[in-house]
């Protein structure tokens, strides 16, 4: 992947050039990490720990640092359960949330495709009644994948759409209902409250639901993704993260800071605009992609 190529390239280049561990070396290493959007605070903490370890273990060769840093990053992304919370005896309800334009609707198309491949019956709920043609967009995805989309008119109450969708999905004996929501910035309290109304309706119709609330984060986003995860985590009950647009040149390193400060697991990654471009997040792979082992 791109993450691997450029990051590893830079790391290897740095290690080859600078055999000695000096200030210049630390500075360059710090820049590589900051350049991946890992986040200044996380990077500074990592660098401090690294310096301590170098002193303690009397390490002088730069190449020895790589596995140490690699292990540190792995332990930050430690043992999150990435599996989706599926219900055995009842319909699983998944709600997709996030700020504007991150890839929510596209991720729903991809997820529907993934579930359909597993022979699950999927229904989609067009809960974005605000953005121009958001309903049509989801319908196109429904058509592509071959799953039903339950929708009302643009401008209607998202909670009412969810109510309809749950009953329609039940009638169709669906295994999974995936609900789209309008993009909203986390700093807009009224829009965040609207989500709670949606949850209340869902929870009333399907006790225990929603079973998953997936926050979609754009890998191109910098430090603000941490704030998004914090606020959506606190007020919207997020159970997992989908990291999209990893097919670009951005590294999505902010999920390391998110893992460190909040413990929300990254469950899936988006790698393109086609329905197959969704993969499970594998923290081992993610870190291995940063460093060669």
């Amino acid at each position: 992947s791109k993450t691997r190529d450029s990051f590893v390239g830079k790391m290897e280049d740095l290690l080859r050039r600078s055999k000695k561990i000096d200030e210049e070396f630390y500075e360059e290493l710090e820049e590589i990490l900051i350049g991946s959007d890992i986040g200044v605070n996380t990077v500074l903490e990592l660098m401090d720990e690294l310096r301590d370890e170098v002193k303690e273990k009397r390490i002088s060769d730069a190449t020895e640092l790589q596995p140490i840093l690699s292990n540190k990053l792995k332990s930050i992304l430690k043992d999150h359960d990435n599996a989706l919370n599926f219900q055995q005896n009842e319909m699983t309800v998944i709600v997709i949330v996030g700020v504007n334009g991150v890839g929510k609707t596209t991720t729903i198309g991809k997820l529907a495709h993934k579930f359909k491949q597993q022979n699950l019956k999927v229904v989609l709920a067009a809960g974005d009644t605000f953005r121009a043609a958001a309903i049509d967009q989801l319908k196109v995805w429904g058509g592509r994948v071959g799953v039903d989309v339950i929708a009302q008119q643009e401008g209607s109450d998202p909670a009412a759409v969810m109510y309809d969708a749950i009953h329609a999905a039940r009638a169709r004996k669906a295994d999974v209902l995936i609900c789209d929501t309008a993009g909203r910035l986390h700093n807009k309290a009224n829009l965040m409250n609207e989500l709670n109304k949606v949850y209340r309706v869902i929870g009333k119709e399907v006790p225990g639901a929603p079973h998953e609330v997936l926050l979609v984060l754009d890998a191109t986003t910098g430090q603000n993704a941490l704030q998004q995860a914090k606020t959506f985590g606190e007020t919207a009950g997020v159970t997992g993260i989908v990291l999209t647009k990893l097919d670009g040149t951005a590294k999505g390193g902010i999920v390391i800071a998110i893992s460190k400060e909040l413990s929300i697991p990254v469950k899936l990654v988006g790698l393109g605009e086609k329905m197959e471009d969704l993969q499970e997040f594998d923290q081992q792979k993610f870190v291995d992609a940063l460093f060669p082992t």
Partner: peptide
């Protein structure tokens, strides 16, 4: 350009 873009903004 999305104002929330991170370090990659320069490459883009």
């Amino acid at each position: 350009v999305d104002a929330m873009t991170g370090q990659d903004a320069v490459n883009v």
